[in-house]
Design a protein around this nucleic acid. Structure first.
Lengths: 332, 332
DNA sequence: TTGTATGCGTTATCAT
DNA sequence: ATGATAACGCATACAA
């Protein structure tokens, strides 16, 4: 059997309730006693039983993250940061890779203090438990998709930012390489924004949609794009990974970046992560997203009323992958 | 407050202990009563309180997976399958992305029924809690790295298989592109095997080490390799992702696969996953690994004695990326 | 077949 | 400042 506060109490010659107080740093216990108890607890390898603690306090200090779509770099970085932040607040983050509905079910049984749902395209058909006693849930995705408090990083505005940046540099032949919009609201939003911004300026659209948003796909789709005679002068990528692939394709095709081609990526990852060339990018800084998610979750747990929607304004970070549009030689 | 068995008991006009039995499908309760209780429980949205259940039964039906290195495709597929299998046995899989030691700590507090440790290079310096009452732990990595029951997929033998396969096809100029061996036992083993097999045959080694084992790196390293005048006729890749990049680099370089270059990958993923060209590969099928891990964990939970080491024999699956070595034109 | 009583490890509310 | 006691929700041995 595991070491309990009773075991410690016996060894320390005090009652178990004193031990409980000492362990929780209650002021109602003498400093001397406290130190002694702590020492014994340490020595015996005491580990608080979360089950018992939760049972009485109705709190588990645990937050569940439903994350069906593993293997996306950006999300894994986000999860890592989120975890770190919550850890600072004594919370443990648990992930479930089950289908979202099953993940929710599991977390409900575990009585986690809050649940975070990552949008991954499948959430449109999600049936939420209308359980009044369920812990607070937060959705990281597109506002209006499911009836839950939502953190939305305004993917559409980010793309608009990218277009405007390129416009200021004199580009008008701007392509977009991104994920297929079917079944995935997140991609839908980005694509729609691109199309709208281009149409508003009466510019031709160059759209390439990929099934998987990894660098591999970015590479191939960019290749095909560059092979066209009416090659665009700039490309907007729907994800960090896609941008990586596009960059490589450009170099392969003998295109100089940014002289011949400007590239704007999506997602603002911390620099330290990039062993590649830093890319001009739009989006909300990963750090900021993680902080917002963490704090919103903590607020919800604290029972504070909060707006049903938190929007984060995307930013533009300029690096050496964008420059003035190349001058077009007059066609004879 | 959440619905408890007492609430159900009241509504059903029975005692709460009868409810408990009914819910657990005990034969000690009349079919009629049982059905009635189940109906009421369903109607009231009853959800068993795991905390309480665990407290009394000392079982949480939960398995913790310590997985610090997210963002590796193969591992995320493995986790997904593992989760599915454990689910069939009523277990919930929880992931922690904390540093391995902190993850263990969290799982211990949660009183999970078992812990699975994924080797990710950092485990060599890991300090295990010498806690006699800790739940069983399993390590998926290289035998002998840490003093824990281990599932080892014999990465070295897999590489040896690859070399032998290529040898039979007449290759001798065989390159290896894989991860750096420092700080990562898994990569160490593969590299060492390659070097040993080559030396045993008195063949020259071509080794390219990459920091990240993704397709991006595979691409670049292969490019540099193919640019050499003494280009090898075959390449062994240390991971699935690397192989993808290598394939692309080959195509880019105008090399025909498999006529000009044979490629062998590592990791046996289910076909459905590959939207790319299927690659001749070595390794233990992902499905088999997942099954083994799941069953070993269940055995450990069941208290069954088990060998401290389970080894899985790698296989060779031949696809159209390997063929007889090209005939070398005699140099004048 | 059903109900009663007890205990799991912890926190919190009382006494002392 | 410390200790005794109840309560959290559930499972189970035992009584009815």
């Amino acid at each position: 059997m595991a070491v309990t506060i009773k075991d410690i109490a016996e060894r320390a010659g005090v009652s178990f309730s004193t031990v409980s107080k000492a362990l929780r740093n209650s002021p109602l216990v003498q400093e001397k006693t406290r130190r002694k108890i702590l020492a014994i607890a340490e020595e015996m390898g005491y580990r608080p039983n979360i089950a018992a603690r939760r049972l009485v306090s109705n709190k588990s200090w645990t937050i569940g993250v439903a994350w069906h779509s593993l293997h996306r770099l950006t999300l894994s970085l986000l999860v890592t940061r989120l975890n770190e932040t919550l850890e600072e607040h004594q919370y443990t983050t648990l992930l479930s890779v089950n289908r979202t509905d099953k993940a929710i079910e599991a977390f409900l049984r575990l009585q986690v203090d809050a649940i975070l749902l990552f949008g991954d395209g499948g959430e449109t058909t999600l049936e939420l438990p209308d359980d009044p006693q369920s812990p607070p849930m937060l959705y990281y995705g597109v506002a209006g998709t499911i009836p839950l408090p939502t953190v939305d990083v305004m993917r559409g505005r980010a793309i608009a930012l990218a277009v405007r940046h390129l416009e200021e540099l004199g580009h008008s032949r701007i392509a977009y390489i991104g994920g297929v919009p079917e079944r995935d609201v997140l991609q839908q939003v980005k694509l729609a924004s691109y199309q709208q911004e281009m149409r508003a300026r009466d510019w031709e659209t160059f759209t390439v949609l990929v099934a998987q948003m990894d660098s591999q796909e970015g590479y191939w789709s960019a290749k095909s794009l560059f092979a066209r005679s009416d090659r665009p002068t700039a490309v907007i990528a729907g994800s960090y990974d896609l941008a990586r692939g596009i960059l490589r394709a450009a170099i392969e095709s003998g295109l100089r970046i940014p002289e011949d081609l400007s590239v704007v990526g999506y997602d603002l990852l911390p620099f330290s992560n990039g062993m590649d060339q830093p890319v001009t990018s739009v989006g909300v800084p990963l750090e900021k997203i993680a902080q917002t998610l963490a704090h919103t979750l903590l607020q919800m747990i604290g029972g504070e009323s909060l707006p049903p929607l938190v929007t984060l304004e995307p930013e533009l970070i300029v690096h050496a992958t964008t420059a003035r549009a190349p001058v077009v030689e007059p066609q004879p």
